[in-house]
Amino acid sequence: MRRAAIVGTGAIAAAHAEALRAAGDRIELVAVVDVDADRAAAFAQEWGVPRVHPRLATLLDVEDLDVVHVCTPPRSHVPLALECLAANVNVLVEKPPALSLSEIDTLIAAERASAGRVATVFQHRFGPAAIRLRRMIADGVLGRSLVAKSDTLWYRDGAYFDVPWRGSWDSEGGGPTMGHGIHQFDLMLSVLGPWQEIRALAARQARDVATEDVSMALVTFADGTVASVINSVLSPRETSELRFDFEHATVEVEHLYGYTDAHWTVTPAPGHDDVATRWREEQSGIVSGHKCQLAVFLDALDSGETPPVTMADTRNTMEFIAALYASAFTGTAVKAGQIGPDNPFYATMEGIGAPWANAR
């Protein structure tokens, strides 16, 4: 049986503990770490975890581990992942995995020198419907991709941002683009493949934060698909929506924090009813979530493959975010590959500074 530990026992850690429990005898949660000893102890008691450690270094010294789940606030993700890689331990890190492209490249370099691997939690890639959609695209059933949209319209009030690390560039890395919409447009990227160019805007409309509270982007993909992306924490009617218009059908999903097949619809183009028939051949009530990704993660470890989502996949999504901010703050179109070490948006998503920074 494989052995896991969780670092950071805040809210998202419960989803990881639940996924580990659901994996049955494939893996055991043997320890947790948190800077808040009381919270760690309460979490360990709730989930039946035998040991609590005060810091990651102690954990790595005394435990024989296959994977560490990093569930701490974003600023600590990369330092903790680097510690795990130095100990040749695999890492499953929550989103956002890093605060910048520079940090991502640091992780990539460290991974090359380690027996451990880093995977990012982008769980919506692994729901049965998303897997089916990518397979149908690969099989040519849907025809050419033409138009798409990704909308993450959520609501977070002022009290949400009272948590010290939220709403700042140096601790969260960005606003809803980085911390909320990332799940939806990452799924879009996994479906549509390489993006080519972004034209974007970002604004601070209502929340007293340093980052944006809404962003919008127009995106061109390498295959010619054109797409729109909206990320908001100002929207009282909350929804997470993706729409893909192919030659032979429109495929849509509307959910909030996790989907089943019931959240998806397929509308065939005239003369292509076979698309809907094929979609209905496989039906599942499984909710896209951490359980789905952990199962695939363990399959990869068992087969000796690199667990998804790989650092190359993660970098593509993080570069998308950096390009969105760069376009929004400079008023120019930004192409894939344009943000290198000499670009101000490489070291921080804030880049040259948000237009509203001086108004605070």
Rank of each mutant, 00 (worst) to 15 (best):
Pro268Ala: 09
Asp25Val: 02
Phe161Met: 05
Val191Glu: 05
Leu20Thr: 09
Ala200Gly: 15
Val233His: 03
Ala86Trp: 14
Ala129Ser: 08
Trp47Ala: 13
Ala347Ser: 09
Thr239Lys: 03
Phe244Asn: 15
Val7Ile: 01
Ala42Lys: 01
Asn231Leu: 09
Asp34Tyr: 11
Phe122Val: 05
Pro73Asn: 12
Arg280Tyr: 14
Ala312Ser: 05
Ala110Met: 02
Leu99Ser: 07
Leu107Ser: 02
Pro344Asn: 12
Gly351His: 11
Gly173Ala: 07
Leu107Cys: 12
Ser190Ile: 05
Thr317Leu: 08
Val118Arg: 01
His263Met: 15
Ile230Ser: 11
Gly116Glu: 05
Ala276Cys: 13
Asp105Trp: 02
Ile286Glu: 01
Val309Gln: 01
Pro96Lys: 06
Val93Ser: 06
Ser235Phe: 09
Val30Lys: 00
His290Asp: 14
Leu189Asn: 11
Tyr259Gln: 01
Pro96Arg: 11
Leu187Glu: 15
Ala323Gln: 06
Ala40Cys: 13
Asp105Met: 12
Leu101Asn: 02
Arg315Pro: 00
Ala44Glu: 03
Arg55Asp: 01
Lys291Phe: 00
Ala276Tyr: 06
Arg144His: 14
Arg237Ser: 01
Pro270Ser: 13
Tyr259Lys: 12
Gly24Phe: 06
Thr152Arg: 08
Met216Lys: 05
Pro307His: 07
Arg144Gln: 09
Phe244Arg: 04
Lys335Ala: 04
Ile6Lys: 03
His77Gly: 09
Thr330Arg: 15
Asp157His: 04
Gln205Ser: 11
Ala109Thr: 14
Ala86Phe: 09
Pro79Tyr: 10
Ile131Gly: 04
Arg166Ala: 03
Asn316Arg: 15
His255Tyr: 07
Phe329Lys: 06
